[in-house]
């Protein structure tokens, strides 16, 4: 069984996807069709690059160390949130989801 599936055991996590460095979906699990997982992987890949650029520019313009390279990002919507760490992205439902634990797990698994 793929190790990224264990993320689905955390409260609120409905989808987890692992993508290649070019955004190609390698594997995805959860409550989402394959076509949308392909879209999610490409979105997360683009977003990761954008965040990397933002952090690089912030460091360059301010001289403040400690922002780059960034570990991840969270966009929290009214009911759904999207979290990205490394080449992993997940969709989390509910305001009460254990976001600290989810980010820790994503970070650990992203290093495998």
């Amino acid at each position: 069984m793929s190790m990224i599936r264990r993320i689905l055991a955390l409260d609120g996590v409905n989808v987890i996807c692992h993508f290649r460095d070019d955004g190609y979906l390698l594997e995805g699990y959860g409550l989402m069709g394959r076509d949308d997982m392909v879209r999610l992987a490409q979105f997360a890949h683009d977003y990761r690059r954008m965040i990397q650029g933002n952090a690089d520019q912030l460091a360059m313009f301010t001289g403040m160390r400690g922002w780059t390279p960034p570990h991840g990002w969270v966009v929290r919507g009214a009911v759904q949130s999207v979290c990205g760490v490394g080449n992993l992205v997940c969709i989390v439902e509910g305001a009460d989801a254990p976001m600290n634990e989810i980010l820790l797990e994503l970070r650990e698994i992203s290093h495998w």
Binding site: W67, P69, W73
Partner: peptide
């Protein structure tokens, strides 16, 4: 992105965006 995603996937609950978090290297 939330508006676009909801339109193309028919999923709901992303819009409006409430919080944005950047997890940097140390901060």
């Amino acid at each position: 992105q939330a508006r676009g995603w909801e339109k193309v996937t028919a999923m709901k609950g992303f819009y409006p965006i409430q919080e944005f978090t950047l997890v940097g290297f140390d901060w």
